[in-house]
Design a protein around this nucleic acid. Structure first.
Lengths: 111, 111
DNA sequence: CGCATATTCAACCAAATGGTTGACCAAACT
DNA sequence: AGTTTGGTCAACCATTTGGTTGAATATGCG
């Protein structure tokens, strides 16, 4: 009964998870590396990754003992369709996106 | 500390709330009328509307004893920017959106 | 083999969420 | 004035969420 959108939006509602997505935008990463910048247990991050995976926003592939996480744009694409329909938005300014990313990334290089 | 995106995505994560947005896409509505198609108390709908308002997705204006709700596309626009950046999505098929709407609208004319 | 590394599992906890009901307030009709 | 109508508030409840810790599992290394 519950839509995909439920899962995707719920996944996106958490800043930690959005930050993870932003990180994965740059490159695929192992779970431990994903967890590194956050002040949070590895187990917590592992749970977040499960949620992102269930939402279809990322995929995880185990290679050796390392589990690699990669961004999966398809779910976002469907959601984007939904959103765009609502606003009949003008073509989007991609530069604004970069500013968003900076807000979303966890503090890595500023104390 | 917590971003607007938190609020907006959390608001969008609930199917009832998305259905309300879909209804408001067609026209502005009074709270009671918004509540009508749902099998849920008026108070519950009222709460949902508060959440949508706080997220900036709708606005409410009281005229007489009736409180009118209208869709507020700005918050969605900002969110859409965020989403698009992630996927670098192709231009979106708006027809697909109409199908989404049907999934989202609560059952009104089938008993 | 024995240890270290990578990740998850399980139990637990506090706080947030989504709903209910009944009282309440304000505006409108007669 | 009295009553109906529109909507919120407050208290309550069950479930979900986001985190913790410690044990468990699995892979790789010397």
């Amino acid at each position: 009964m519950s839509n995909d959108l439920d899962t995707v939006f719920a996944a996106l509602a958490d800043p930690t998870r959005r930050a993870i997505l932003a990180m994965l935008l740059e490159d695929d990463m192992a779970v431990t590396d994903v967890a590194e910048p956050f002040e949070m247990s590895l187990a917590a991050i592992s749970k977040h990754l499960v949620i992102l995976t269930k939402a279809g926003l990322i995929s995880q592939e185990k290679r050796g003992r390392v589990k690699w996480c990669k961004l999966e744009p398809d779910a976002l694409r469907a959601t984007s369709v939904w959103m765009q329909g609502f606003g009949q938005f003008e073509p989007v300014n991609l530069d604004a996106f970069e500013r968003f990313l900076e807000t979303e990334l966890p503090a890595t290089n500023d104390t």
